[in-house]
Structure formats: C-alpha cells, structure tokens
C-alpha cells in the first residue's frame, strides 16, 4: 500500500529510475546521428582497443574505448539501441495485440473458443522458445522484420495465458452479470467491462515483453542470426567483445551493462505502471 501511495504521488524511485534510463536510451537511439561522437562503422587500426576514458592510453572523444577494429564503442552502443528499440516496440506490440485479444476472447467467452485457443497455447509452449526463435529466423531469413515476426510468433502465448486467466475471473464478477441483465451484448461487455480491468496487466506484460524482445534480439545477433547488415546491434557487439575479452574487457562489459539495465528497466517500469493504472491500488 505504501508503495502504491508513493507511486500515486509520482515519487516512486522505481518508476523514475527505470523510466529515466529508458527515456535516455530511447532518445539516444532516436538522435543517434546527432549524439554519437564517432561514426560507428569507421575503422581505424591506429585506434584499436583504446581503453575507456579513465584508463591510461585513452583518447579524447572515445569515451568507452574502441574495439579490435578501432571502432568507437559508445557510438556503436548508441546506434545498436536503434535496432534494440525497434525490435522491442514492434515485436512486443505485435505479441501483445495477438496474445491479449485471443486471451480476452478465450477467458471471457469460454466454451469452444477457449478450448481451441488454450490447446494451441499448450502446443506452442511445448517448444523451447530460444530454439523456436532460431529455427524461425533460420526459415524466415535474417532480416529485421523476420526477427520481429519470430519474437511475436513465439511470445504471444505469454499474453494469452495471463489475460485469459484474468478475463476468466472478471467474467464471473457480478458487474458483468449486471451488464448482461441490462441488455449489453457480449462483445460490448468484453470491451467495456472486462478489458479495462485487465489493462493494467496488459501494460505490465507489454513492458516486460519489450525487455524480453531486447534479450532475444541480442541472443539472435550473438549467434549471428539477426540482421545481416554491418549495423551494430547489442548482441553482435557482445559477440565481438567475447572474442577479445582478454585484450579489451570493455567491449564485452559495456554492452552487457546496457542490455541488463534496459531489460531490468522495462520490467520495473511495467510493474510500476501497473500499480499506477490499477484503480484499487491507486
């Protein structure tokens, strides 16, 4: 209750820290060409493996150092954020729309609609998700849209399961019955009475899913199955960093920190938003 009250006053540190980091990362990604100190693709063998700014041998303008080809790490991280956020928003939103809609229908209408949807979800979830993603991308080809598609195709079940359960308990509530007595149609009740009550969960899941999408994209890049361009992605930087861990630890550590901060922020931001949206907690 305390946390909820703090959240209402807009002072929740969780909300501000998570939201602040996400906003910063997002703005950096959007305005990457203006912000990035260097060209993320420019190689310069004279500048290879420069350490971050506080260590001996650092060069001004290369804040986080350079990789083994002499490319500026900070600039690569900033540009890598573009793909991370595009994937996060597109994949999570698609998964959310498909999964929430099916979950709402299954949970509220029940009957055969529920039986069919629940069966599909069960079958779907029997596949290990990362293997499933790698398989899909291998089939669909390595491009931005196939990565997004793969994540959406795999992860809609997350939304479906949770929203189904919530819609189901909402459907048993007396106010749904009252709405039926008053003469509302079933679809109208689902959208007007049930949907607003499951929305806080949808928002929390959506934010969490964005974090998951960032990780999945990184994993796919890591195994060289993401976007087949030279554009940096967090996953591909991590993959490169792993190879030079002994000579240049920063190439691995900074993208990992960026990734972890972003993923954590998405999940914390979602939880905080949920507490804010929920009228009973508010």
């Amino acid at each position: 209750m305390d946390e909820a009250r703090i959240a209402r006053r807009g002072l929740s540190p969780r909300l501000w820290l998570a939201g602040g980091w996400l906003l910063l990362a997002l703005l950096a990604a959007i305005f990457a060409p203006l912000i990035a100190p260097q060209d993320p693709l420019a190689q310069d063998l004279m500048l290879e493996r420069l350490p971050p700014f506080w260590l001996d041998g650092a060069e001004p303008g290369y804040w986080l150092g350079t990789d083994s080809l002499g490319r500026d790490l900070l600039s690569r991280l900033i540009f890598g954020g573009r793909i991370a956020f595009i994937v996060a928003f597109a994949a999570a939103t698609s998964a959310c729309l498909i999964g929430s809609a099916l979950g709402l229908i299954a949970g509220y209408f029940g009957g055969w609609a529920d039986r069919i949807i629940s069966r599909v979800v069960d079958v779907w979830m029997a596949f290990p998700p990362v293997l499933f993603a790698i398989l899909l991308v291998a089939v669909l080809g390595t491009s931005l849209s196939s990565v997004i598609l793969a994540i959406a195709i795999i992860d809609w079940t997350r939304f479906c399961r949770v929203i189904r359960a919530e819609a189901m308990s909402q459907a048993r509530m007396d106010y749904v019955e009252s709405a039926r007595i008053a003469g509302y149609g079933r679809t109208g009740i689902m959208l007007r009475e049930v949907l607003p009550n499951v929305l806080p969960s949808v928002v929390a899941l959506l934010s969490l899913e964005m974090g998951i999408a960032v990780i999945v994209e990184a994993i796919l890049s890591f195994v060289n199955l993401s976007i087949s361009t030279d554009d940096p992605t967090w996953g591909s930087i991590i993959a490169e960093g792993r190879l030079s861990i002994h000579q240049a630890w920063w190439v691995l550590v900074f993208p990992l920190i960026t990734l972890i901060l972003t993923v954590l922020s998405f999940s914390q931001f979602g939880e905080a938003l949920k507490a804010r949206f929920d009228p009973v907690l508010r």
Binding site: M173, D174, Y175, S178, I181, P196, N197, P279, V280
Partner: peptide, 15 residues
C-alpha cells in the same frame, strides 16, 4: 433490474 447482494463486486472497479 437487479439490486445485488454484494455491492462491491456489482460495480466495475476500474470505472
């Protein structure tokens, strides 16, 4: 019309 037994669950909490 119905006057229900439990006035809490008979109103939609999010509206």
């Amino acid at each position: 019309a119905l006057i229900p037994q439990d006035p809490l669950t008979a109103l939609n909490p999010s509206r």
